[in-house]
Amino acid sequence: MECLILSAGAGSRLMPLTARLPKPLLPLGSTTVLGRLVGQVAPLGPRRVLCNLHHHAAAAERYFAQTDLALPVVSRREDRLRGPAGSMLTFQDELAAADTVLVVSGDLYLGDGALAELVRRHQESGSDLSVLAVEVDDGSRFGVFRFDDGGRAVALEEKPAWAAGRRSWVSGGAYCLRPELLKRVPADGLYDFGAHLIPELLAERAAVCVVPWLGRWDDLGTTDSYRRAVLDDLASRAPEGADASHVAPTARVHPTARLTGRVLVADLAVVGAGARLHDTVVLPGATIPDHTTVADGCVA
């Protein structure tokens, strides 16, 4: 199996958090969003992870060179963005030689076991493509599945207006596929899983397996969703109800500062004298001035 973690996007909805970092390298506890995903991929058996790069590619390359991750990472820059499915062509030779291709969006926060369930169901079903599906309260920001009376997926509609405020089963940003599907990816232009490949296969009645996941899932496309994932991760590492903070070794927190609730202070960040932080994320290199109070925030 080969695994591609999509890492090229600009993360424009997360500005200014992504002004200096690609979205997958945003800190998450003692690691990063991407580091956590690599750790979840490692038990599935691949000998490496592939990452396509574009936005702040040099920062990602430095991170890979300096960080001990659960698997080696082979990265490659895209000279132009091809779209999530089109990005597979960046590693066309490697993926074409695999038995199974796993593609994971680099901005996902997944509960443990999600990717293992996707791979297991894909291998058991013999499908051309398997898609992790999650249920959300508002489907209008996602690709929404339509099912027939027998529960078989028959269509996927990208960001439909009719799904606003409606609970919907949506594509969860993780895919398992036969490498033969690479032949469908056009050499030019943008090519997406949700807008192109999945609807095309469903229209052709190809073997598409929708794998429901009821566990933890978040698309870290907004500041609120990213902060929620960081706080959830911190809480999972502490006794229930206890304060849970992580201060990176290279961060500086003044002895008179007070951290309560769940607080992440990332590399090279500075928290000044008398500062008060509660349920807050302080990104790499950020500064909290003396006697500043931040609650329920995210500081870049």
Results as ranks from 00 to 15, higher is better:
residue 245 S to G: 13
residue 186 P to Y: 09
residue 270 V to S: 13
residue 113 G to Y: 00
residue 291 H to K: 10
residue 69 L to I: 10
residue 10 A to N: 08
residue 58 A to P: 01
residue 23 K to Y: 01
residue 20 R to G: 10
residue 63 Y to L: 06
residue 9 G to K: 04
residue 208 V to E: 04
residue 105 S to L: 09
residue 194 G to D: 15
residue 19 A to L: 13
residue 34 L to Y: 13
residue 288 I to P: 10
residue 71 L to C: 07
residue 198 I to M: 07
residue 169 W to A: 02
residue 86 G to L: 06
residue 281 V to C: 15
residue 138 D to G: 05
residue 130 S to P: 09
residue 106 G to M: 05
residue 203 A to I: 01
residue 120 R to V: 02
residue 138 D to K: 11
residue 114 A to K: 07
residue 103 V to K: 02
residue 13 R to P: 05
residue 111 G to F: 03
residue 162 W to H: 13
residue 275 A to I: 07
residue 250 T to R: 03
residue 115 L to I: 11
residue 17 L to N: 01
residue 254 H to S: 15
residue 46 P to Y: 06
residue 219 D to V: 01
residue 182 L to W: 10
residue 293 T to D: 08
residue 179 P to K: 01
residue 282 V to A: 10
residue 135 E to R: 15
residue 264 L to W: 00
residue 144 V to D: 05
residue 215 G to C: 13
residue 162 W to Y: 14
residue 11 G to C: 04
residue 255 P to W: 00
residue 51 C to Q: 11
residue 130 S to L: 12
residue 144 V to Q: 07
residue 31 T to F: 03
residue 239 P to A: 13
residue 157 E to L: 01
residue 181 L to Q: 10
residue 91 F to P: 00
residue 59 A to I: 02
residue 121 R to E: 07
residue 277 L to W: 00
residue 86 G to M: 09
residue 153 A to T: 11
residue 283 L to K: 01
residue 11 G to P: 08
residue 223 T to R: 12
residue 274 G to P: 05
residue 263 V to Q: 01
residue 109 Y to S: 15
residue 138 D to V: 13
residue 235 A to R: 13
residue 117 E to S: 15
residue 81 L to P: 05
residue 261 G to W: 00
residue 172 G to M: 04
residue 8 A to E: 14
residue 28 L to E: 09
residue 36 R to L: 14
residue 220 L to E: 08
residue 285 G to W: 05
residue 263 V to T: 07
residue 21 L to Y: 15
residue 188 D to F: 12
residue 149 D to H: 11
residue 235 A to G: 12
residue 65 A to W: 04
residue 299 V to D: 02
residue 80 R to Y: 10
residue 135 E to G: 01
residue 129 L to W: 06
residue 81 L to K: 13
residue 105 S to W: 06
residue 111 G to L: 06
residue 76 R to A: 15
residue 254 H to C: 14
residue 173 G to A: 06
residue 57 A to Q: 02
residue 157 E to V: 03
residue 136 V to L: 10
residue 244 A to L: 05
residue 174 A to R: 08
residue 152 R to E: 14
residue 46 P to A: 08
residue 177 L to N: 03
residue 199 P to W: 07
residue 83 G to F: 04
residue 254 H to D: 15
residue 214 L to F: 06
residue 295 A to Q: 12
residue 148 D to W: 11
residue 50 L to W: 01
residue 98 A to G: 07
residue 166 R to V: 15
residue 27 P to L: 09
residue 115 L to F: 11
residue 108 L to F: 05
residue 114 A to H: 08
